[in-house]
Design a protein around this nucleic acid. Structure first.
Lengths: 255, 255
DNA sequence: GTCTATACACAGATAGAC
DNA sequence: GTCTATCTGTGTATAGAC
């Protein structure tokens, strides 16, 4: 699987995301026509991510948002009851999508080597498609309430555990040779995060997400491989992995 | 060199830092008694880092800062002319100290393996001593002016170049075997950053900075080593490195 | 469903007493 | 050198017209 293939498979559109948000918030959103809601939520999310990722969510005023979306402040407040709620909607949606897609792809794999490979690629590819969402979630965690911060932390640890579970499985089955599973999973996450946190840098250098994925895999494999045998196995298994297609339609997220 | 040894060598105290800031800003700081300035700057910096790292610099009001420092708002404004200037002081000081100490330690090393090892350890140890400063600089870059943001980016790239230069030297001398120098330097940085960005996580798991340093070194060495020979060389060279002592006095930064 | 106009709380910053 | 009191702009949020 490469990035182009991943994009086709998930075809995760902005509309899809906004429809899902509407479904989850029918009570708090005062506007009732789905078409209108989806259209405006898309503008609101786009604008929020754009402005916040430039100068921070706290620094983005509702007047800024009003101008960027071409919606009045009154109109904005019929889609959420407070600025904080807008923040929570974005964070929640990001977490939900990430977990869902990551798990779907990993579960389609049988062996630990394939799982590890696909987990790393899926995370990178998803963060490529939804870069503004990933960046936003990371940088704006502080602005959440205590309660919502706990959720963000739990999600971070959960994702890490997905990786350490795979590593553990591979260790038990004798494919990997790892001293500290948790620490290994932790730095894998750090490398994945760098991709969306330092996007400007990689873009400037014209590093593609596939190049980066290849690099991370090489580095991780060099560390966890116990001699030539298991290393050969991993390299070989990269060729034969397949993934079930996932549902979705509409145009893709881009930025 | 381990962390305890590093701490003794640098003995980088809060007073030292504040004295330096005073020296750099004699014109803009209205208070003239050095003792008073140093004492109050220390309170101001402590409070700013504490509040900002919890809820963000933008979200910290001058009234928050006034309460935490036990200084009136009027008093605060005799140490800086605007909130933005306070931000710049912290960022500038952090960059200056980091570069100075990193370079001092690296230049004391002869061979690339020693340089790489000491560069990684020095960066980790310094970010351990000054964790609030590192975290702050990373998270608050957005709030800087365009001009100041350029400086922050330049600094980020400069640090990365320190690493890629070392890797390049090792490559030329035949110790390292690396496909992409820049990408390798980039993920090394990502791993170093994770240490101060996710401090809560490592603290909870009781991972010491020395454990983390050992782990990063192992991972990097596994990747850049070309067979057993060079790997042995690196491992061996770890034992014999020494570093010149650096000046400084007073109590150490802690948090 | 969206707009305009406005309430009112709080931000950063300063003047002048002590 | 520090404080108190206050100026003025901007923030979030809402009411009520259309």
């Amino acid at each position: 699987m490469d990035y182009v293939e991943f994009q086709k498979q998930v075809s995760l559109s902005k509309q899809d995301i906004c429809r899902e948000v509407y479904a989850d918030n029918r009570n708090s959103i005062r506007v009732k026509k789905e078409g209108t809601v989806v259209k405006n939520l898309e503008r609101i999310f786009d604008a929020t991510l754009k402005i916040s990722n430039k100068k921070g969510f706290q620094a983005m005023s509702m007047r800024d948002l009003s101008q960027e979306t071409n919606l009045s402040m009154g109109a904005l407040y019929s889609y959420f009851s407070s600025k904080e709620e807008l923040l929570e909607m974005l964070q929640h949606q990001h977490r939900t999508i990430t977990i869902r897609i990551l798990e779907a792809y990993i579960h389609a794999q049988k062996d630990p080597s394939g799982k590890l490979r696909i987990a790393i690629r899926t995370h990178l590819y998803l963060s490529e498609i939804m870069q503004p969402w990933f960046y936003f979630s990371y940088m704006e965690t502080k602005n959440l309430s205590k309660q919502q911060q706990e959720l963000a932390i739990a999600s971070e640890l959960y994702t890490e555990k997905i990786f350490s579970d795979i590593l553990n499985e591979g260790q038990i089955q004798g494919f990997f040779q790892i001293d500290d599973l948790q620490l290994t999973a932790s730095v894998i996450k750090a490398m994945l995060q760098d991709w969306y946190l330092k996007r400007w840098k990689y873009a400037k250098r014209k590093i593609s997400v596939d190049q980066y994925a290849r690099f991370v895999l090489d580095m991780v494999e060099a560390y966890i491989s116990d001699g030539k045998a298991s290393q050969k196995y991993i390299k070989f298994s990269e060729a034969k992995g397949t993934v079930n297609e996932l549902s979705g339609s509409g145009d893709t997220l881009s930025r």
